[in-house]
Design a protein around this nucleic acid. Structure first.
Lengths: 229, 229
DNA sequence: GCAAAAGTGTTACAAATACACCCATGC
DNA sequence: GCATGGGTGTATTTGTAACACTTTTGC
């Protein structure tokens, strides 16, 4: 049986594009590197794949140790391979993207970073490596994904109102949705449970609170239906 | 600057899922391995990534040397990472899928294979490694992709008829399309050029021949429109 | 009671679907 | 001329988009 060591092997990293939502803005969690290459430069939180771990395990490990975030929606984005993308040599990047509710986590920089911080996706600094390109790919993915799968809920609190969900979709897709029609589209999916408790907002009429009903959603998926906004 | 050699590195292969279309059937090009592991077993044509080449270069090299196919539609599918997927050790597989017109190529097995052959996608043998799973992923991708981008043309001859295109879509998506409505959908995209020449088919009324107009299609894409069947 | 935001009913229009008909060819 | 498959016109149904109205709260 042929040996695996006949060829020089590339290094493999896992990089995470971490989306959050706060104050009607989508934001990305970036890390300021302490070490070369790209020391003192903002990059996506990433790290080398360990030899016995899966990508998802690596992504979760990196999220936890470098940013303090855990237990989030996570999905493979794309694998980036430009031969010159890392000055140290041949390094592949398996990129994942995550959806995080920023209120749920205390962000904290790991020891290998100067700082970890949320940035408005409309005002990102210039990133190290090819991470600008990776982010662009992730943004495109999020925009198309959100049309087909109700992943937007991952960015909100467990209990949320229709106006909040409506605003989230308008923010992600950067266009307006007729309020009435948006409500109808969402409600006819029958994947939301109304929780009669109302919000103590200090504004005008309080909005109804909902919870995402993952049981009903899974039934829907298993029947082969694909939600489309 | 940290060295890349502090960690053991995984091996990286590029595997190709090659779709063809012939006699109203979708087929896949498989390779019968000469060497262990999985000697005398059918697998996807794949090989190790060379240290200075991109995935796409590797995919094309493998296609040419192992199957005789070249110059085809090629797109990254997914990167597979199950730690036990290869008995030799930790091997990642960056999977690509290709669309090929089988009439255009003389298929020929490279020296490392017993045989290379087209298989009807409804009658595939049991494959080596985790290639059954990779194929399933590729089939799902093809089915959704074909709804949004007119990649189906890649599987047909340069000049083709509406009934041919219609049959291709019905085969890929495994459902029927109303003939009239399918014609209208395709024609209103305005990405087909009619070539007045007619086919010398031995059947009844000859069908109009068309060519794919990639210039018009690119204009459409650049305007931000997404075709939807 | 009035302003502001949340919730709901209904209409007008566009698009998908279904059906029908005509056309060109081989025998 | 008739059977067969190819091409095209149009009515019906469906679903989207737009608008209007009612409800609930704070001041």
């Amino acid at each position: 049986m042929e040996s695996l060591d006949n060829f020089p092997k590339p290094s493999v990293t896992v990089d995470n594009v971490i989306f959050g939502y706060h104050d009607n803005k989508i934001s990305l969690l970036l890390l300021n590197r302490k070490e070369e290459p790209f020391a003192n430069t903002w990059t996506l939180p990433g790290g080398f794949l360990h030899i016995h771990e899966s990508f998802e395990q690596a992504a979760k490990r990196i999220l936890t140790t470098k940013t303090g975030v855990n237990d989030v929606f996570l999905e493979q984005l794309y694998t980036f391979d430009t031969p010159e993308r890392d000055p140290r040599g041949r390094v592949l990047s398996v990129a994942y993207y995550a959806l995080v509710n920023p209120h749920k986590y205390e962000i904290m920089a790991g020891s290998a970073a100067n700082d970890v911080q949320w940035f408005d996706w409309k005002a990102l600094p210039k990133l190290g490596f090819d991470h600008d390109f990776i982010v662009q790919t992730a943004v495109n993915r999020l925009k198309t994904k959100v049309l087909w799968q109700p992943i937007g809920f991952e960015l909100l609190d467990e209990r949320f109102t229709m106006p909040e969900l409506h605003a989230l979709y308008e923010t992600i897709l950067e266009r307006e949705f007729e309020r009435r029609n948006f409500y109808k589209r969402i409600m006819e999916l029958e994947i939301l449970k109304k929780v009669d408790i109302r919000r103590d907002g200090s504004r005008k009429r309080p909005a109804d609170l909902f919870e995402f009903d993952s049981k009903k959603y899974n039934e829907l998926i298993n029947k082969g239906l694909s939600f489309k906004i």
